[in-house]
Design a protein around this nucleic acid. Structure first.
Lengths: 231, 231
DNA sequence: CTATTTGTACTGACTGGTCAGTTTAGCTAG
DNA sequence: CTAGCTAAACTGACCAGTCAGTACAAATAG
């Protein structure tokens, strides 16, 4: 479901004309789904290519035909997941809501509400693709990693989206300038992953909104006078 | 350095009389140091027991003599690290400061300052033992993991320490009761790891205090009227 | 004070299994 | 027709765990 296939249509020698990957797209999606589930559960190093192929219902050769190596499969899996996450985050940025708690028809565009909607989207993503979140936290921060470059790029893309939202807040409200913008974005970024994963793993009884509220505390602490918190 | 050896003095059949683990303690410490470094860098699954033994300057058999299995070595490594971290966090809780930014001789015991000191200690720990932090985020959240039980226990111990500090703040200040205590603790806990690791991996130019300030934004957002933020 | 025993800590070669990646010949959907 | 895929066997490196044996210190015996 939700086929996306980012930027690499042809596996090896690319056909110069238009894209004809009719079967290929389906095969890749199946491989993404299967490897996402397995790798998220047991870790990249503890899952074999044979298992992934079996779970996807294709043969081992197909994996190597499409991706060339286990390492490359995982790299593209990371890109794939980030594309989905980015699309969701940006989707909310367009109208500031997209959540179930719309404040009203005319009250959109408030940066703090947009921020809240975005974090809500992040929580939903973590709930829907917990395996991706686990893969991310497992392999990000590994210093000489095979996916070092991949992570640097993808992390930058995601932080840019968050940075945009923080920027909007900083323009609309007086904020605590003594807090470094970068550290703040990192804290929010990390908190989304960790709170989302913790909810999934240790505290399934926690609601989505509780998690969002906890992360939003960061923003309320960043903004100087939060205009009397709905008391 | 800093020998600790938590709770298991004798490996198999314990000598009933006095403890003579003179060599053993040193060996275990060497194995902890070596495996911490290697596993933190490349991940538990990508490090071999032979490598660990070689790095520690002992033979492979010694690893199995002392720990019985690779899995058990890692479990004890996790306990070891958490003991160190807990000791640091609790050390600050006793007098509320212990950081380089003591406010004065009589002004200690303010819960928010204590919180800040504690987060500072956490940042120092992440900087000193980045490999432990990496191991933690890599293997925590793995659903059917070999160390599931270990993580549940250790996570509980650490969250209890944070919970204590949050509790003190909630007693001394008016706080936003709509934010669930558990989610808040989780967010702080996670933010410490992630911000500390990100600093180590991607942003070494960020200072310790910037990181602390970003995480403290959570607390300032949790407290309702932060008494006019030093403007 | 010597000799023997005992138990602990450690050694390192070896085993049996696992797994990434390759190869090849053939099938099938578009 | 051919790009995409299958099925199965194979290679070669790699690695967790084992085990028979060594080193040495303290206890016990002669």
């Amino acid at each position: 479901m939700t086929p996306m296939t980012p930027g690499a249509p042809a596996p090896k020698g690319s056909a110069p004309k238009g894209q004809r990957p009719a079967r290929t797209t389906a095969t890749r999606q199946k491989l993404f789904d299967a490897s996402m589930a397995l790798i998220g559960e047991r870790g990249a190093a503890n899952v074999t290519v044979d298992e992934i192929a079996a779970a996807a219902g294709v043969s081992k050769g197909t994996v190597y035909y499409n991706f060339g190596s286990k390492s490359e499969l995982i790299a593209q899996l990371l890109r794939h997941g980030v594309d989905i996450l980015k699309a969701r985050l940006l989707g909310t940025a367009e109208d500031g809501t997209a959540g179930p708690k719309t404040t009203g028809p005319g009250t959109t565009r408030d940066p703090l509400l947009a921020m809240e909607a975005m974090i809500g989207q992040a929580m939903d993503f973590m709930a829907e693709y917990p395996s991706f979140a686990r893969l991310w936290v497992s392999e990000n921060w590994r210093t000489p990693s095979e996916w070092q470059g991949t992570f640097t790029v993808l992390r930058g893309e995601l932080l840019a989206v968050i940075g945009q939202a923080v920027e909007s807040v900083a323009k609309a409200y007086p904020v605590d300038e003594s807090v470094s913008r970068g550290s703040l974005e990192t804290a929010i970024f990390g908190a989304c992953f960790v709170v989302g994963l913790d909810r999934q793993t240790y505290n399934p009884e926690r609601t989505r909104d509780q998690s969002v509220a906890a992360i939003m505390a960061i923003m309320r602490g960043y903004v100087l006078k939060p205009a009397a918190p709905q008391e």
